[in-house]
């Protein structure tokens, strides 16, 4: 069953007097519970496609449907609501809130998703997810006390604590060494299977494609294969 449908998606930017098309009538469907990797050369439009699909920027044309809801017609506040409750995000850098402990990073996401969990349930879920990403022992640490790999594991925990249906991962291993990259990808893979989370991932690292169920290659703003 498809969770996200992208039809004839277009994106163009004005550069001076010229208009440059970054995405040219892109069609894509994401199957529920599967990991789709977007690959392509720099400037092929893969990150733009991911960020438009995630509602982080507007398209110039086309339709994006998520669970039969048309995201392209939503107001910015409705889109924020979808991002907070249904989507999860992992970026190239962890982008953790520098003054919050690991536990509080997750608490913030639970509050943002407006989940009505009891305090006990909240704590239990935080413990579960931090144990899954092997960060429970660092629960009270601040981001500046963690290594790059540890930060990224916390970012993954933050991205899925609120049980999103769809996880967007933009180059999640780009800032990590190969050992940490494998750990992070294995984690994303296992969480996707365990929690039935659909993943759309952008990567330029071919070694990471073994963790994807499907690879979509982009070239010059179009899906090549």
């Amino acid at each position: 069953m498809s969770l996200l449908q992208i039809e004839e998606l277009e994106k163009s930017f004005k550069i001076g007097r010229n208009e440059e098309k970054i995405l040219k009538s892109v069609d894509l469907e994401l199957e529920e519970g599967r990991i789709t990797a977007l690959v392509g050369t720099s400037g092929s439009g893969k990150s733009t496609l991911l960020t438009i699909a995630a509602g982080l920027q507007q398209s110039s044309g086309g339709i994006i449907k998520f669970s039969d809801k048309d995201l392209t017609n939503m107001s910015s506040s409705q889109m924020r609501d979808v991002r907070a409750k249904e989507f999860g995000f992992v970026f190239q850098h962890a982008h953790l809130v520098p003054f919050l402990s690991v536990k509080d990073q997750l608490n913030l996401m639970i509050d943002t998703a407006e989940l009505k969990w009891s305090k006990k349930e909240k704590q239990q879920r935080i413990q579960d997810i931090l144990e899954t990403v092997d960060m429970w022992k660092h629960r009270d640490s601040d981001p500046d006390q963690l290594s790059g790999g540890e930060k990224q594991r916390v970012a993954i925990a933050r991205a899925i604590i609120h049980e999103p249906k769809l996880l967007f991962a933009d180059e999640p291993t780009a800032s990590l060494d190969s050992k940490r990259s494998v750990e992070v990808m294995e984690l994303i893979r296992s969480l996707s299977i365990e929690r039935n989370i659909t993943v759309l991932m952008v990567t330029h690292d071919e070694d990471m494609l073994v963790y994807a169920d499907r690879t979509v290659e982009m070239k010059d703003g179009k899906i090549e294969k």
Binding site: A54, L56, R80, D81, R83, F89, F91, P98, T112, A113
Partner: peptide, 16 residues
């Protein structure tokens, strides 16, 4: 601003 941008990306309201 970077932190605020990321928080907005993950759905935190501006009013928060």
């Amino acid at each position: 601003l970077g932190t605020y941008g990321i928080l907005k990306a993950v759905g935190v309201k501006t009013i928060t």
